[in-house]
Structure formats: structure tokens, C-alpha cells
Amino acid sequence: MLHIAVQIAETTTEHAAEAPLPPLAFGLIAFGSLVAALLFTFSFRNVGNRHAGVTVHADSGH
């Protein structure tokens, strides 16, 4: 029984699945998404200083 399974495994060929896009496209998509994440993060660079003059009191009830 095992001998038959080994023979079948030796005779079958494996076909690798092709990628839906060329490798350059994957790189460009990754680069674009990382640049978008960088710009999104960079947009919050000065938020702490915008409200520097506002004081928050713990007993204000808000």
C-alpha cells in the first residue's frame, strides 16, 4: 500500500501557482501603501502644540 502511494507521489508533478501581478507591481503597491501611512502619521506631527494654551482642570466635569 505504501509502495503504491510512493509511486503515485513520484509520478505526479507539482505546478506552482503564478502570482497575479509581476513582482515590480507588488513592490510599488507596498511602497505606495507605506508612503500613505507615512503621510497619515506625519499629519499628526503638531497636534500637542495646537492646544498648548488650553488648560484642563480635573474638577471641570467634562
Rank of each mutant, 00 (worst) to 15 (best):
V6Y: 01
G53P: 13
G48Q: 11
F31T: 01
H51S: 13
I29H: 06
I4M: 02
P22W: 13
N46Y: 15
V54T: 05
G61S: 08
T13E: 05
A37I: 03
T13W: 00
V47R: 12
R50P: 04
T12E: 05
T55S: 08
A9Q: 02
A58D: 14
L24P: 03
L24Y: 08
V54A: 09
G32Q: 11
I29P: 03
I8E: 07
V6L: 00
I29R: 15
I29W: 12
A25E: 15
F31C: 01
F26H: 13
E14M: 06
F44T: 02
A16N: 05
S43R: 14
T13S: 07
A5P: 09
F44P: 00
S43D: 10
T11L: 05
F40I: 01
S60M: 13
R50E: 14
A16E: 15
T41L: 12
A37E: 06
L38I: 03
V35H: 01
T41F: 15
T11P: 02
G61R: 07
P23A: 00
L21R: 15
F31E: 01
E14C: 11
G48D: 12
Q7D: 02
A16F: 12
A16T: 04
H3V: 04
G53C: 01
Q7F: 13
H57N: 04
A9K: 04
A52F: 05
V47Y: 10
V54G: 02
E10M: 08
V6T: 00
A30L: 10
F40L: 11
V54D: 09
M1A: 08
F26Y: 15
V56R: 03
G48V: 02
M1I: 11
H51P: 11
A30D: 01
A30K: 13
A37K: 04
R50F: 13
N46W: 15
A19I: 00
I29G: 03
S43V: 03
N49Q: 11
G48L: 05
I29V: 04
T55H: 03
E14T: 06
A25G: 09
V56H: 04
V56D: 00
R50C: 10
A52M: 11
A25Q: 15
P22Y: 15
S60K: 06
A17Q: 06
F31A: 01
A36K: 09
A5E: 14
G32Y: 05
L38N: 11
F42M: 07
L39Y: 14
G61V: 02
T13L: 03
T12N: 07
L39W: 15
H51R: 15
F44N: 03
F31L: 09
H15V: 00
A52K: 09
M1R: 11
F44C: 06
L24Q: 04
N49M: 04
G53A: 09
T13I: 00
F42H: 08
